[in-house]
């Protein structure tokens, strides 16, 4: 479904991503793990057109999307949950969810989807009319995921959904990520928490200094001594 070949991302002269190849098949959940600064977020930002790629190609459902105008990405069926959540702090929960459905015009279906997000995250329903900026980090992460799903994407990109959250919140959020994935959502999960990411995914890629150094079945990576030493603290 998603095919990345030779993707490069550079900030000025510094190469953050040095020509990586990977793919995500339909209905699959794939983890992209690696240390801080390995280039994971840069990769995701280039996919989501928040950054211009310095080279390479990204194809989504057979269509080249490398040079798409940023606001057209969501109409192609890709939704990003950005690093740091990126909710609109001065808009209410409901308004944030409505923004997720910005490119849709089926009002009744949008209302139904908002209720669906509330069933995933009952906490959001309690705070429906509250400003997003007044919520805790975990609640904002729930909102960011809900908002991304509101576009009815074909593929979900998750950037560090566990970052900075209490363990109990991480659990709740990953419960929903698993539910959404089990319903057939194609998902690319970028995580520093390698154990959690690999336990949740079917396949994984390990990134180091802008390159993919390892890839394979998630269970195999979890058992790999190099991965265990470098990312699982063993």
């Amino acid at each position: 479904m998603l095919e990345v070949t030779g993707l490069r991302v550079a900030y000025g002269g510094i190469q953050a991503v040095r020509g990586i190849n990977f793919h995500v098949a339909e209905g699959e959940m794939v983890a992209l793990i690696g240390a801080n600064g390995a280039g994971k977020t840069s990769t995701l930002k280039a996919l989501a057109r928040l950054l211009d790629a310095a080279g390479g190609s990204v194809r989504f459902r057979g269509k080249e999307i490398t040079n798409l105008v940023p606001h057209e990405l969501v109409t192609q069926g890709i939704a990003l949950v950005p690093e740091g959540r990126g909710v609109f702090p001065r808009m209410t929960i409901v308004e944030n969810l409505q923004m997720g459905a910005y490119c849709r015009s089926d009002q009744a279906e949008i209302e139904a989807d908002i209720e669906r997000m509330f069933s995933y995250f009952p906490r959001l329903k309690e705070r429906a009319r509250q400003l997003a900026g007044t919520m805790s980090g975990g609640e904002q992460q729930m909102l960011a995921i809900g908002r991304a799903l509101m576009s009815r994407p074909k593929m979900l990109l998750l950037d560090e959904p566990s970052m900075g959250l209490a363990p109990i919140m991480v659990q709740k959020i990953f419960e929903v990520i698993r539910i959404v994935a089990s319903e057939g959502m194609t998902t690319l999960l970028v995580e520093q928490n390698a154990k959690l990411a690999l336990e949740t995914s079917q396949r994984g890629y390990v990134m180091e200094s802008g390159e993919i150094t390892l890839s394979g079945e998630a269970s195999a990576l979890l058992a790999d001594p190099k991965v265990r030493a470098a990312y699982l603290g063993e």
Binding site: P70, F88, M99
Partner: peptide, 21 residues
């Protein structure tokens, strides 16, 4: 109006939602 407020708050994220800023 929502698109205007979203653009005011965070233009890149508004674009992610599909807003032509």
């Amino acid at each position: 109006g929502r698109a205007m407020r979203a653009t005011a708050e965070n233009p890149p994220i508004a674009q992610l939602m599909g807003v032509d800023i």
